[in-house]
Computed example of a mutant assay.
Amino acid sequence: MKIGFIGAGNMGRAIANGLVAKGVCQANALLCISASGKGSAIMAEQTGASIASSKLELIEQSDIVVLAFKPQHLETISEEEATAASGKLVVSVLAGRSLASMKDVFPDAANLVRVMPNTPSQIGKGVSTFCFEKVPSDEQKETVEELLASLGTAYEVVEEQLHVATVINGCGPAFYFRIAQLISEAADKRGLDKDLALRLAAETGIGSLELLLASKRDPKDLIDEVVSPNGVTHALLTSLDRQGLPAIIEQSTEDAANRSIELSQNKK
């Protein structure tokens, strides 16, 4: 099974690196090409992938075609290149590009897959959400799940759910990074070394979220185990609620999901 990457930026390279590192495929099964040639050169150096001379050559020689370039360049795929993808699985990590817009470009693909990965995929700790254009065969589903497992974990959703899922797993890393940044800055103002505060915030976050997953308990129950009446944690949570954190999260989720819908509609 040959996998071709059109585009070789951070996400394309993360997938390729993961496939090789986890033994999903050998380096000689990977092909890549990028607009400037820089990304494909890096991917080739990191993974041993071959660099295709053209997109047409790459598509012709690949069983699976991964679209990992800038979303606005989808329509630059030529009719000849689209024809070469007939009967093949086309996987897109193009933000905001709907399955309908992919279908317009690749009408005869065996199936189309839209994926929303996230940046922790670079270290194999990613969370991806994905959807198929049509009901997949068992082989297609297994192939996509295996491919995305090279990045971390993956969950199938229907396309309409991808907007909200994007807010969680796509935007989520920036949210947690922002929280860690604000915590470390607030601690620094109060005399705690900023680098130490950042480590405390990051490691506490990792441990807490791993406990949430491992325990399979409601977050409210885990909160109750930390809070003592009129204690420090109680003061923290009371202050957060008083300043409107629940409303902020609700409105931010709504705004981000609406923006995802808007971008998708603008690009069909």
Rank of each mutant, 00 (worst) to 15 (best):
residue 88 K to W: 02
residue 63 D to M: 06
residue 63 D to I: 04
residue 95 A to E: 03
residue 102 M to P: 00
residue 116 M to D: 10
residue 110 A to R: 14
residue 80 E to A: 15
residue 131 C to Q: 09
residue 66 V to Q: 07
residue 81 E to V: 06
residue 112 L to W: 06
residue 103 K to A: 08
residue 88 K to F: 00
residue 95 A to Y: 05
residue 89 L to E: 07
residue 97 R to D: 05
residue 57 E to C: 02
residue 51 I to K: 12
residue 97 R to C: 13
residue 47 T to V: 13
residue 41 A to L: 04
residue 127 V to M: 12
residue 40 S to V: 11
residue 111 N to I: 09
residue 108 D to P: 06
residue 103 K to T: 08
residue 68 A to Q: 02
residue 106 F to H: 07
residue 79 E to P: 04
residue 109 A to W: 02
residue 50 S to Y: 05
residue 77 I to Y: 05
residue 66 V to E: 04
residue 91 V to L: 13
residue 78 S to Q: 04
residue 38 K to E: 14
residue 67 L to M: 09
residue 43 M to R: 09
residue 87 G to A: 12
residue 128 S to V: 11
residue 94 L to I: 06
residue 105 V to Q: 06
residue 105 V to K: 02
residue 115 V to I: 08
residue 78 S to P: 05
residue 107 P to S: 06
residue 42 I to Y: 00
residue 46 Q to I: 05
residue 109 A to R: 04
residue 119 T to N: 11
residue 81 E to F: 12
residue 98 S to N: 08
residue 75 E to F: 14
residue 132 F to A: 01
residue 57 E to G: 01
residue 107 P to D: 03
residue 70 K to T: 14
residue 88 K to S: 00
residue 126 G to T: 07
residue 73 H to T: 13
residue 110 A to P: 00
residue 72 Q to N: 13
residue 93 V to D: 00
residue 104 D to Y: 07
residue 77 I to F: 11
residue 128 S to Q: 09
residue 78 S to F: 08
residue 75 E to N: 14
residue 113 V to Q: 09
residue 44 A to N: 08
residue 115 V to F: 03
residue 104 D to V: 07
residue 133 E to V: 05
residue 45 E to L: 13
residue 54 S to E: 12
residue 96 G to W: 03
residue 57 E to L: 01
residue 87 G to Q: 09
residue 97 R to Q: 15
residue 98 S to A: 11
residue 74 L to G: 11
residue 66 V to D: 05
residue 58 L to P: 05
residue 129 T to Q: 00
residue 80 E to F: 07
residue 96 G to C: 01
residue 60 E to P: 04
residue 71 P to Q: 01
residue 86 S to R: 15
residue 87 G to H: 11
residue 114 R to A: 10
residue 37 G to T: 09
residue 64 I to W: 04
residue 129 T to M: 13
residue 41 A to G: 12
residue 90 V to D: 12
residue 52 A to E: 08
residue 65 V to L: 05
residue 92 S to Q: 11
residue 79 E to T: 14
residue 70 K to R: 06
residue 50 S to F: 01
residue 119 T to C: 05
residue 93 V to H: 07
residue 123 I to W: 03
residue 104 D to I: 00
residue 122 Q to I: 15
residue 42 I to N: 13
residue 122 Q to V: 15
residue 98 S to Y: 03
residue 94 L to S: 15
residue 90 V to T: 07
residue 96 G to E: 03
residue 49 A to P: 10
residue 94 L to K: 00
residue 55 K to Y: 01
residue 114 R to W: 09
residue 102 M to Y: 01
residue 85 A to Q: 02
residue 80 E to H: 04
residue 115 V to G: 09
residue 47 T to C: 14
residue 113 V to P: 10
residue 56 L to E: 09
residue 53 S to F: 03
residue 73 H to R: 06
